[in-house]
C-alpha cells in the first residue's frame, strides 16, 4: 500500500475479489434433488453399517462374556451404554507419519449428528492422548502410543481380538483395565484405558471394534 488511505482500497479490492468469485459460483439448479439423493445414499449406507455394528457388538458381548471372563458372571458394570464417541458407528483414526513415527494423530467420530474431531501433534511422552470420555462413575481414555502390544506391562493379561484387530487386555500396574490393540503400523498401538466402575471387557472390545485406523495422508483423506 502506498498511502494510509490505501487500507480502505486494499479492503475494497479484497471485497471485490470475493464478490467476483461469488458470481462465478455454480448455480443452485438441481441442488435440492442432489441433496436429497445424497441423503438417501447415506441413509442406505448407515443402515447397512448399523447392521454390521450391531452384529459385532452382539458377538463381542457374547464372546467377551464367555471367553474373557472364563465363564465368570458379568460384573456389575456389564451392559453399560457406550458413552460419547464410543456410541458412534465408527471412530476413525488417522496416523500421519513424520520421520518414521506418527507425527500427528487425528480422530473423527460422528455423535448425534455432530462430528467430534481431535488432532494431536505433540505426543505426551510416547503417547498421543486422543480422547477421554467421562461417564458417571468411570472414564475411558483412548491413546495411540509407540511400543508393542506384547511389550506393555499388564497384569493378568489375555490375548483378545477387537474386530479383526489382535491385542491384549489386562490390568495396568497403576490401576485401570487396559486394552492394547495393534494398529497395522509396526511399533504403534491403540490403548483403551477404563478407570472406575466402568465397562466390562466385552464392552471395551465392542467399542474398540468400531475404531478404524488409516495411515498416511493419502489413505486418511481419500
Amino acid at each position: 500500500m502506498s498511502t494510509g488511505g490505501g487500507e480502505a482500497e486494499f479492503e475494497a479490492a479484497l471485497r471485490e475479489a470475493f464478490e467476483r468469485r461469488g458470481r462465478e459460483a455454480p448455480a443452485a439448479a438441481g441442488l435440492l434433488e442432489a441433496v436429497l439423493a445424497r441423503r438417501r445414499r447415506q441413509t442406505r449406507h448407515r443402515v447397512a453399517g448399523a447392521a454390521v455394528a450391531t452384529a459385532l457388538v452382539a458377538a463381542g458381548t457374547l464372546l467377551g462374556a464367555q471367553l474373557l471372563r472364563g465363564g465368570e458372571p458379568a460384573g456389575p458394570a456389564a451392559g453399560v451404554p457406550a458413552p460419547g464417541i464410543f456410541a458412534a458407528e465408527e471412530i476413525e483414526l488417522c496416523l500421519l507419519p513424520g520421520g518414521g513415527d506418527p507425527a500427528e494423530v487425528l480422530l473423527s467420530a460422528e455423535v448425534g449428528g455432530e462430528e467430534v474431531q481431535t488432532a494431536i501433534s505433540e505426543p505426551a511422552g510416547d503417547a498421543f492422548r486422543l480422547h477421554v470420555e467421562r461417564a458417571p462413575g468411570y472414564t475411558v481414555r483412548l491413546d495411540v502410543l509407540r511400543g508393542s502390544v506384547a511389550g506393555e506391562p499388564l497384569d493378568g493379561a489375555r490375548d483378545v481380538r477387537a474386530g479383526d484387530r489382535p491385542g491384549r487386555i489386562g490390568d495396568a500396574p497403576g490401576g485401570g483395565r487396559v486394552l492394547l490393540l495393534e494398529t497395522g503400523t509396526e511399533g504403534v498401538l491403540l490403548r483403551l484405558t477404563a478407570e472406575g466402575t466402568g465397562p466390562g471387557d466385552a464392552e471395551l472390545l465392542a467399542w474398540a471394534a468400531k475404531i478404524t485406523v488409516s495411515t498416511g495422508r493419502d489413505a486418511c483423506e481419500s
Binding site: 448455480a27 443452485a28 439423493a37 488417522c94 487425528l106 474431531q117 483423506e221
Partner: peptide, 19 residues
C-alpha cells in the same frame, strides 16, 4: 474439517450448471 483438506469424501451428486 481435516478429512476434507485434500479431497472430498464424496463427490457432489449431479452436475450443476455454472452460472
Amino acid at each position: 474439517s481435516w478429512r476434507r483438506r485434500r479431497s472430498a469424501e464424496e463427490g457432489p451428486a449431479g452436475d450443476l450448471p455454472c452460472a
